[in-house]
Design a protein around this nucleic acid. Structure first.
Lengths: 215, 215
DNA sequence: AAAAAAAGTTGAACTTGTTCAACTCGGGAA
DNA sequence: TTCCCGAGTTGAACAAGTTCAACTTTTTTT
């Protein structure tokens, strides 16, 4: 099995393998995702997709760890990831989860090539499409419409982050918990309560008490 | 006393006045801001700036209110603004402040022309550069590099929002307060404690106690 | 300058969420 | 199969932050 990408991740050495089965179909997920943001021609979609390479990631493997530099931007075809930081107190603070049809990156570290504050870990066996920095820049240069595409996607993401911050201020932990369950039923069903607590910004003990109070 | 909707901007007509003095110099602030993100030629900078029109905004005037549709994107030349939402409990939750050299918009409402959830209010007599939707689209079309510019700016903004969310989870109110003072000394000096509390997501009484505990 | 309206302070009672420790339970590795 | 580890639960004591109300100070309006 060809070993295409390898990452030195802090202590850990991770070898990503190229999937053994053909995943021509998989690009449809990416194409549909793009089309939701901008109506592109078939040629343009193909021109974009050819830069993204498929990889398998095993459960519990890290695509990125704090301190290392993010060398890729990604898109999830299958499976689920957890993007989190470890704070001084040792709490794992989850920024977001990325399941099928989600983008996966540390923009900060990728753009500026500075050490990342984030960890990206597969919660189950997953398939992703990855693009490295050189190819991403080549993609921007070869297809100017990609600038517009990512401009639009970034602005939409911005809106989501603003809304989440407001929810964190205005809602109680209980309200945030049920909002999360309702908004992301497909993702939340794959998660442990501990992981959900890390996303909500509360202790897992308290989440347990929230659940009890609702029975 | 919570702000009630006596400022019905859906109905209210706000007459922005064009500044009486020439502000040729003012565009330098915008040009410098753009250059921080992308190195553009003098012609490109001029090509962008000509779309942005200067306006005066009086203290306490609203550029946008919840429920109305955002018809502009803006940039602050002088003064200071507060961007906030009013929640069900009547709390004013401040998303951010925009002083000189900051961008000012409700991307969500502006992009999709949907009713805004935000209020944008001048905290002091201010000067802004505004662009409407038609001109913004014309700008994107006339200068493709503007797509790249806003793609980069949006991605940087994204990073800031992610970091703020993590700070909200990992830091106590006291830590967040001092972080804010240190990070934005120029802005925080213009604000009342009540406004700062609204940004930190805490009650102004508690902020008062934080300050006392540090003396 | 006086009056009115906000902003800020303080204390007490209260709610929300944390921490620690002890326990149960289920699933994966040897 | 057994062992063990990590997830989840529960309770008690604690810390963080809110609410309300009364008060003082500062700012704005007239």
């Amino acid at each position: 099995m060809p070993l295409v990408f390898d990452f030195k991740l802090g202590f850990q050495y991770i070898a990503l393998t190229r999937p053994t089965i053909l995943i021509t179909m998989s690009y449809d997920v990416l194409k549909q995702n793009i089309k939701k943001n901008l109506n592109l021609s078939t040629e343009e979609l193909e021109g974009i997709c050819k830069y993204y390479k498929p990889f398998d990631v095993k459960k519990k493997e890290f695509l990125l760890t704090q301190g290392s530099i993010c060398k890729f931007e990604g898109f999830v075809l299958e499976g689920c990831f957890r993007i989190f930081t470890l704070d001084k107190k040792g709490n794992e603070n989850t920024l977001y989860f990325a399941a099928k049809d989600w983008w996966l990156m540390d923009i900060d570290s990728f753009m500026n090539q500075t050490p990342s504050n984030l960890n990206i870990q597969a919660l189950e066996d997953s398939k992703v499409l990855l693009i490295n920095r050189r190819d991403k820049n080549a993609l921007y240069d070869s297809l100017p419409v990609v600038e517009k595409l990512f401009r639009i996607m970034s602005q939409k993401a911005l809106v989501s982050w603003q809304r989440r911050l407001i929810r964190n201020h205005c809602f109680t932990a209980k309200e945030r918990y049920f909002h999360f369950l309702e908004t992301y039923p497909d993702i939340s069903s794959k998660l442990t309560d501990k992981q959900i607590a890390g996303y909500l910004g509360i202790s897992h003990e308290f989440l347990s008490k929230i659940k009890k109070s609702e029975k």
